[in-house]
């Protein structure tokens, strides 16, 4: 608990308004510290405005890096294949992760199952740069998420609404991504989730102090964190978006809706021309408010991934409903 208050009440995000250097997490002179909230959240800050791409081989990782990915997500099967093939989806083979880490110099992320803290320990030992505790894999624990404060490596977690995002941050997540519906190529759930999170933050900002206590109860999140979000008008960590982004226009849409950056899963390597599509999505994400640039980026990309309408998915196959 002290961890949580320290890092959130430390108002990491509002530090530029704080004229006293080092009022929090004062590390003392000459004693370097790893794995602090600032260091963990800081890497996510550096990814802003960028595209993080799912890759399943070292060759794909290289293609992603060359196309301008800001990081890659190493996994065994992209969500569209997990969906098609079914079965239990787990952490990737360490050899595969090693190969991907070796092949690129941009940050490498990897997925662990919800609640599977040993998969997370393994990924930390493999020196990945970020762990995604992800609903795309089969949950290992239907009650508890991983205690992410326990790790030096930072975590990103999915959320469909503000309460879920704040619970993940309370558990130590250093970055949030709206979930969307992975492996569909249907952006509608991503839109719904980012609009929900941003809308709920806007509502909090309009509440008076006495109302925030009730808001914290309803959001099922700690009061201090809720009050910080109300005060700052944003999460204390970076908010990316994920799940269903398949085109440059999809990416620009999510950026215009207020995402700090974009995860693209199946959308790139399940398309006709991954190199061109990857570069185009990077460009559209950077120039998201310039319609002419997004139009240019959208030309001549060949087939987009085929896609599945989320409405056609029976409820048990909706990944966004995993995690709570």
């Amino acid at each position: 608990m002290s961890n949580i208050t320290e890092s959130s009440a430390g108002s990491y995000t509002s530090n530029p308004a704080d004229p006293t250097p080092g009022t929090i997490e004062d590390s003392g002179q000459g004693s370097p510290r790893t794995g602090t909230a600032r260091v963990k959240r800081g890497l996510a800050d550096m990814l802003k405005g960028g595209v993080i791409m799912d890759v399943v081989t070292a060759e794909q990782a290289k293609i992603a890096e060359d196309a301008g990915a800001v990081a890659v997500m190493a996994l065994e099967r992209v969500p569209a294949d997990i969906r098609a093939q079914g079965g239990v989806a787990r952490m990737s083979d360490p050899d595969l992760i090693d190969q991907i880490v070796e092949s690129v110099s941009i940050p490498v992320m990897a997925k662990a199952r919800i609640g599977h803290f040993v998969e997370a320990q393994v990924l930390e030992a493999l020196k990945v740069d970020y762990i995604d505790e992800s609903e795309v894999l089969s949950p290992a624990d239907y009650v508890n998420h991983i205690d992410k404060w326990d790790f030096t490596v930072p975590f990103v977690c999915g959320a469909t609404n503000l309460g879920e995002a704040l619970r993940r941050i309370t558990e130590g997540a250093a970055m949030i991504r709206s979930k969307g519906e992975a492996g569909t190529g249907d952006v509608s759930e991503a839109v719904k989730h980012i609009r929900t999170i941003r809308g709920e933050i806007a509502k909090l900002s309009a509440l008076s102090k006495d109302e925030l206590y009730v808001a914290a109860k309803e959001l099922q999140a700690p009061y201090e964190l809720v009050a910080e979000v109300a005060r700052e008008g944003k999460l204390p960590v970076v908010l990316f978006t994920a799940g269903g982004v398949a085109t440059p226009a999809d990416a620009a849409l999510m950026m215009q809706l207020g995402a700090d950056g974009v995860f693209v899963g199946s959308g790139i390597f399940k398309s006709g021309n991954p190199e061109a599509r990857a570069a185009a999505i990077v460009r559209a994400t950077a120039q998201y408010s310039d319609a002419a640039a997004v139009a240019d980026a959208s030309r001549g990309l060949g087939e987009a991934m085929v896609g599945i309408n989320v409405a056609d998915l029976p409820a048990p196959h909706r990944l966004a409903e995993r995690g709570w």
Binding site: S27, R33, G42, L43, K127, V128
Partner: peptide, 15 residues
């Protein structure tokens, strides 16, 4: 040298 200090688990803060 890019990433001269290692991967993210080696990232650090100091004075």
């Amino acid at each position: 040298q890019r990433n001269a200090f290692g991967s993210q688990v080696d990232s650090f803060e100091t004075r």
